[in-house]
Nucleic acid binder design. Structure first.
Length: 492
RNA sequence: CGGGGAGUAGCGCAGGCCGGUAGCGCAUCUGGUUUGGGACCAGGGGGUCGCAGGUUCGAAUCCUGUCUCCCCGACCA
């Protein structure tokens, strides 16, 4: 049995790292806090990206691309925004190197100092709104529905592969609207797109909600989010959608003439998900044997492992059958690989593909050929079954569906079991310490109380759920009146 | 930036106190036997011991300085 992974019980953080690295998703790079996304990890991201991109386009958005560099003066135009990001910006100050006169390689040429420093984008609101000023004159120019796929840099103190890296990949949608309501509708629509994507493709149930003031995006009026629960009972913000009001329009003086020729400020939204989703995926579904990937986004959905003996006729038979199955699965649009690499033995391959989270494995051996069967194994439950050869393709296709559903329901059950309604402070503290997960409790609505709770328990308000029922209650800390429960959790 | 740990072969580590031929496991290469849950046998290759000084006949080992990375905290998608 493989013992190359740390188990979740032993050390959850180490288990996560092992999975990322040994599963072939990513590795550390020469640059502190930055990672190399390896081909297998990038294939996973591409599958996620492609589906999201389709969904953005279905809702009327177009892709564009804005510069990675932002003039320093832009960032300071929106006060809250600069406050939020100033502490984690990489800054470009020079544009040239030269040979060190002392012979120690190259040095920054002091003659080549930039007039105005450039900030490596931590997010692109400012550079984009600078452009929007030129794009928008009249109500007929609105709405602008633009998305960009890009890398951004936030100089984080502590980093973790996928979950928090100094550079990460994401998409950021930036829209401009004539009315407040239209912008709010857009914000909510994109939140729904995210929730649908994460639930249906990543098989991960999420809570849709709105952030409290202290957790809000710097420069937003309202931040909506989807929150997911990881296997260790910690919450993870999986995506955010911001209603920006007129803050950026005012900062960049973006006005439009309405039908009555009145000049009005434009209403804005922005929304994003990042490679952090890959971290969520890993921590939600995987087990001590390795990654468990939802079929819809798995780079490889089915792998066929042959078990040869020395008999050439049998080998030929296995190869022919495998080729046939590959052809049929591909015709159905299923991503399949026949691993006939003779330098690895079957047991090695079983372990390897389990580590990599391939949902379905088909084993074809000499004995199977004699009996006209194949062994079909599913990654999520690790169950194996003997299937008649002429039913194998059908079975594999069915299993992919089953696994997708099973992963979702398993995660949903886990979340339900780890969401606790709490009405007293003692219970609040003990649930957070002993059980973890989401805690639904009343809160008096003040930032002071929120801060105090964070200080005492490390738990933060993840969101005020959109479907939260109105009920009379008392704040779990102060006892002051409250009208609805909010979700607390320790978070990534 | 505070506290803790670590830099020796691609990876994981031992050696260091007590200076004297640089070692182990995995990986890798060659040949063979194998193939139903990470195979076995035989042979081989690979390291200026993080870097710079110093002590010494001689430094991975002792001394001084320096750099980097990891873990725990404050900040964050």
């Amino acid at each position: 049995m493989s013992n190359i992974l740390t188990s979740r019980k032993q050390d959850y953080a180490q288990w996560y790292n092992d999975l990322v690295i040994k599963g072939g998703l990513a590795e550390y790079s020469a640059v502190r806090g930055c990672m190399v996304i390896k081909p297998y990890g990038f294939a996973l991201w591409e599958n996620m990206r492609d589906q999201l991109d389709r969904m953005f386009k279905e809702t009327g958005h177009q892709n564009a691309y804005f510069p990675i560099f932002i003039p320093k003066s832009f960032l300071s135009k929106e006060a809250a925004h600069v406050d939020g990001f100033a502490k984690e910006c990489a800054v470009v100050t020079h544009y040239r190197l030269k040979n060190d006169p002392n012979g120690n390689g190259v040095i920054v040429d002091p003659e080549a100092k930039l007039e105005e420093e450039l900030i490596v984008r931590p997010t692109s609101e400012t550079i984009i709104w600078h452009s929007y000023k030129n794009w928008i004159q009249s109500y007929r120019d609105l709405p602008i529905l633009v998305n960009q796929w890009a890398n951004v840099v936030r100089w984080e103190m502590r980093t973790r592969l996928f979950l928090r890296t100094a550079e990460f990949l994401w998409q950021e949608g930036h829209t401009a609207h004539a009315t407040k309501q239209e912008a709010i509708d857009e914000t909510r629509q994109m939140l729904d797109v995210y929730a649908t994507f994460v639930e249906e493709y990543m098989a991960l149930p999420v809570i849709k909600g709105v952030k409290t003031e202290s957790e809000r995006f710097a420069g937003a009026e309202d931040t909506y989010c989807i929150e997911a629960l990881m296997q260790d009972g910690k919450a993870l913000q999986a995506g955010t959608s911001h209603f920006l009001g007129q803050n950026f329009a005012k900062a960049f003086d973006v006005k439009f003439a309405d039908k009555d020729n009145n000049m009005e400020y434009v209403w804005a939204t922005s929304w994003g998900v990042s490679t952090r989703l890959i971290g969520a995926l890993i921590m939600a579904h995987s087990d001590d044997e390795g990654l468990v990937l939802p079929p819809r986004i798995a780079p490889l959905q089915v792998v066929i492992v042959p078990i040869y003996n020395k008999d050439e006729a049998t080998t030929q038979k296995i190869n022919d059958k495998a080729a046939e199955i590959v052809k049929e699965l591909k015709a159905k649009g299923i991503r399949v690989k026949f691993d006939d690499d003779d330098t690895r033995r079957p047991g090695w391959k079983f372990a390897e593909y389990e580590l990599r989270g391939v949902p379905v494995r088909i084993t074809l051996g000499a004995r199977d050929m004699d009996n006209n069967i194949a062994e079909v194994a599913r990654r999520d439950t690790r169950e194996k079954e003997s299937i008649a050869l002429d039913k194998v393709v059908e079975q594999a296709e069915q299993l992919l569906e089953d696994i997708q559903m099973n992963l979702y329901h398993k995660a949903l059950t886990f979340r339900n079991e780890n969401t606790t309604r709490v009405d007293s402070w003692d219970q609040f503290v003990s649930v957070l310490n002993d059980k973890g997960g989401f805690v639904a409790a009343h809160w008096d609505g003040t930032a002071e109380t929120e801060d105090k709770i964070k200080e005492m328990t490390k738990a933060t308000i993840r969101c005020i759920p959109l479907d939260s029922v109105q009920e009379e209650g008392a704040c779990v800390l102060t006892g002051k009146p409250s009208k609805q429960r909010v979700l607390f959790a320790k978070a990534y």
